[in-house]
């Protein structure tokens, strides 16, 4: 089984988000970038599914040379080889076209992405790639098993789950619970240096949307403290002041 895992490089989760250029651009100064946490789970699941000679795992990233450390980390974690599409990941539509093109040419059985990236939170790539390749997609999966040419997937739905049986090839967005993300060990880190990382050029894609500016949420006012033995005061405020109960 050939598995492709799409990984993106995102600001570390502790990053305080600020903007520059009149709030038109994310301020990446001093920001530490990590593999998107959901993509790490996808990678861990792909490695589990391929272990014991059952398959191979390729990771793909759309990014400029600065994302190479992120890709090397994925290789150190256990991917067999990697591809970087050499371009700024302008938006999900652009990224999806690059992934779809590479995947079409290389006949993967299963493509995994994280359910969303923690920077732009679009949950877009799996659906876009599914459509561009005309294959089934699941955007938020909580469990993935593969049997022969079929993926058995638990899809998250409001208040529960749906159990799906999907013919391969397909693309699945991975959520928490699918696998435990893995930390590379020393041997992995050593071997990652010699694993193949192929750099390919991007295809052109029409720009359909762009971010005009960013905004940070309004800070809340001062907290109103209520004495521990007077919870009825809290109930009263929630009712008459905040109108939420």
């Amino acid at each position: 089984m050939k598995i492709l895992v799409c990984i993106s490089s995102v600001p570390d989760t502790t990053t305080k988000i600020t903007f520059t250029n009149d709030n038109a651009q994310f301020n990446s100064t001093g920001v530490q970038f990590i593999v998107n946490p959901y993509d790490e789970i996808a990678l861990a699941r792909a490695i589990e599914l391929s272990e014991g000679g059952k398959g191979t795992v390729t990771v793909i990233n759309v990014g400029e040379a600065e994302t190479d450390p992120t890709i090397r980390k994925a290789l150190a974690t256990g991917a067999d080889d990697a591809v970087r599409v050499n371009a700024k990941p302008r938006d999900a539509w652009f990224v999806a076209h690059q992934i779809a093109k590479y995947a079409k040419e290389n006949n993967f059985d299963l493509i995994l992405t994280g359910r969303e990236s923690i920077d732009y939170n679009g949950t877009q790539v799996a659906g876009f790639v599914g459509e561009l390749m005309n294959i089934p997609s699941v955007s938020i999966a909580k469990k993935i098993e593969v049997q022969d040419q079929t993926a058995l997937v638990d899809r998250e739905v409001e208040g529960g789950k749906e159990v799906l049986s999907i013919s391969l090839p397909c693309i699945i967005g991975v959520a928490e619970g699918v696998a435990e993300s893995r930390i590379p060990n020393m041997r992995g880190i050593m071997s990652a240096r010699t694993k193949p990382l192929q750099v390919i050029e991007a295809v052109e894609v029409a720009e359909l949307s762009s971010v005009t500016k960013f905004e940070t949420p309004q800070p809340r006012g001062e907290v109103t403290l209520i004495a521990a033995n007077e919870p009825e005061k809290l109930v009263e405020l929630l009712h008459s002041k905040s109108h939420v109960i």
Binding site: G122, A126, G127, S139, R155, V157, L208, S209
Partner: peptide, 23 residues
Amino acid sequence: NSFSGKGLAPRVAAKLEAAFAPG
């Protein structure tokens, strides 16, 4: 932008070659 909507909206957008704003 419900769970099902998250699966559906990008596919609808891609079919229509539409610009897409999630969330």
